[in-house]
Simulated scan of single mutants.
Amino acid sequence: MPSNSLDATLDASAIGLSGLCLVHCLLLPVAAALLPALAFVGEAEWLHLAFVAVALPLAGLALVRAHRRRPLPPALFGLAAAGLSGLGAGALGWPTHALETPLTVGGSLALASAHLWNWRRRPHARCAG
């Protein structure tokens, strides 16, 4: 797989993971209220930690590879760091359990935005025609 293709795959995977995280945070509690059998998945703390455990290395690899190719603006790194911090704080229930969902949703959106920004910075083939 060519390097540029791998970079695009990493960013796309990270954006997809952020989307899954949003679905988990926003839709699963509603589904669990309607179907109590899903409640155990909606409140599974291990799942929150698993999202962060996958997001950290995936985001780090994608952004470090992109930075080596073409230096990233500090604001992009800051947006990614804020996103990862929000995800981590939400997964750990810090500073309070009541802030878990807002921190996780905000972190997920910030991280997805950073990956989208990173993806848009890459040169893309233009359509001929």
Rank of each mutant, 00 (worst) to 15 (best):
R68G: 12
C25T: 03
L103H: 07
M1R: 08
P102I: 02
A39I: 03
R122L: 04
G106W: 03
L63E: 05
H115I: 05
L111M: 11
L63V: 06
A98L: 07
A55K: 14
G60I: 05
L63W: 00
P95E: 03
W94G: 00
S13M: 13
L49D: 05
P102N: 03
A31D: 08
A62L: 14
L27D: 09
A114F: 00
N118I: 12
L10M: 12
A114C: 05
P29Y: 02
R120S: 11
S113A: 13
W94N: 06
A110V: 14
V30F: 01
R121H: 00
L76P: 10
C127S: 03
G60M: 03
G106F: 06
G78S: 09
A80T: 04
L27P: 05
R65D: 15
A128D: 14
A82K: 05
V64M: 07
R69H: 00
R121I: 10
L84H: 12
T9K: 11
C21I: 09
S13W: 11
C25P: 04
A128Q: 11
A110E: 08
P95G: 01
P2K: 06
L6D: 12
A14M: 14
A37V: 11
L34Q: 02
A31G: 09
L26Q: 02
R120G: 10
A14G: 13
A62T: 04
P102A: 03
A91K: 04
A80N: 06
A14Y: 11
S85Q: 05
P2I: 14
V23Y: 00
W117E: 07
P36E: 12
R70V: 11
R121D: 13
S13R: 11
W94M: 06
L20Y: 05
G107H: 00
W46G: 13
E45G: 12
R68T: 11
E45V: 10
N4S: 15
W94H: 03
